[in-house]
């Protein structure tokens, strides 16, 4: 009876004290040393042990552009790691230590964690942990889960999927590849590279959810090559093709005020009027001429275009019908 009770507790709902969670998880986070160390590029980063066979997940970076990648465990054991493969789209790299006796995160069946989830970030930020020193632990919560593309400002990162944004400052030199674990000690994400908004200059702290990385990890192990996504050129569509003539672009962010409507155009038929302020294309809010042409470019070919305008303080939805065949025309 007692044993049965025990087994139930130890396997599933076992609650660890935060100190114990960190102690157990930190043993599965490694310090990586490789190329760099000049012109502001660090020669070190972090990684997580992910398999019984000694595979390490980390972030694809210049650190790995080295003849020798050193991997140091929390007990000071040093391995020479070999690069198994990379996924440029997720900036993911898989290393092998060819060791079978290292601890590792069991990351199967980990579901997405909602905002408010408490987390520990474990990484060798700023390279402060050396030799047999354990990586640094930070605490916080998952602030939100959003696609990296749909954030404030514009970040130059190839990854376009969901990320966990964190409410603590985790993304520093050395921390890419570090572990994001929940208070139950489960690996829920991997810390990404330092990113900052090119418009607002705000640094963001984020991790890529583990469930976004595992399929790519398996593909790499299976030897499937992953090609970088062809650069997705943002198509911009000039609203004049719909008959909407906007105020000239006098400033960087001229609001999309309608100056005039071309006769016998989709806009004229939909009753768009001069002095309307366009505030949304479909569900995308637009604040400037440029964002409006980008939003138009995102509407799938053939889909009806719906815009929202402000007229005398009222929000009015207008249906302009499908886009005239300009994408084709543009290509020709």
């Amino acid at each position: 009876m007692a044993i049965a009770l025990f087994l139930a507790m130890t396997t599933e709902s076992m609650a660890l004290r935060p100190e114990e969670t960190i102690a157990s998880a930190a043993r599965k986070v490694v310090k990586l040393y490789g190329a760099g160390g000049f012109r502001g590029l660090e020669a070190y980063q972090s990684g997580v042990l992910i398999s019984q066979e000694g595979h390490v997940l980390t972030v694809m970076s210049t650190v790995l552009d080295s003849d020798q990648i050193d991997c140091v465990l929390d007990d000071g054991t040093r391995y020479v790691a070999t690069l198994v493969g990379v996924d440029p789209r997720r900036e993911l790299a898989v290393l092998s230590l060819q060791a079978t006796d290292t601890p590792f995160f069991d990351s199967n069946n980990i579901e997405r964690s909602p905002p408010g989830t408490r987390i520990f970030a474990l990484s060798n930020l700023f390279g402060v942990a050396v030799g047999d020193e354990r990586v640094s632990a930070q605490h916080g919560v998952i602030a939100t889960v959003i696609p990296l593309a749909a954030r404030r400002g514009a970040y130059e990162a190839p990854y376009r999927g969901d990320v966990y944004l964190l409410d603590c400052t985790t993304n520093n030199p050395g921390s890419p590849g570090g572990a994001l674990v929940d208070y139950r000690g489960r690996l829920i994400g991997m810390l990404g590279k330092e990113l900052r908004s090119s418009t607002s200059g705000i640094w963001i702290s984020y991790a890529i959810p583990i469930d976004e990385l595992l399929p790519a990890y398996r593909d790499i192990l299976d030897g499937k090559s992953v090609e970088p996504e062809t650069s997705s050129l943002v198509v911009r569509i000039d609203p004049t093709v719909l008959g909407v003539v906007l105020l000239p672009d006098l400033l960087d962010k001229t609001p999309p005020f309608v100056e005039s409507i071309l006769p016998d155009s989709p806009a004229a038929r939909a009753d768009v009027r001069a002095d309307d302020l366009v505030v949304a294309v479909g569900l995308d809010s637009v604040g400037s001429r440029i964002s409006m042409s980008r939003a138009l470019g995102r509407v799938p070919a053939g889909d009806p275009i719906q815009i929202t305008v402000v007229r005398n303080g009222e929000l009015i939805d207008l249906d302009l019908g499908p886009l005239p065949d300009t994408k084709k025309a543009a290509r020709q």
Binding site: A15, R17, P18, P114, P115, G116, T117, R118, V141, Y183, R184, L251, D252, K253, P255, P256, L277, V279, S285, G287
Partner: peptide, 29 residues
């Protein structure tokens, strides 16, 4: 720790109902 986490999430779920997004046009240049 876990109970607090549950409380965080419940509080967030509550706050979601009255926290709204504000979008603006014509911001300072």
């Amino acid at each position: 720790s876990i109970e607090e986490e549950d409380a965080f999430r419940t509080a967030v779920a509550r706050a979601e109902m009255f926290a709204v997004r504000i979008e603006v046009i014509g911001a300072a240049e």
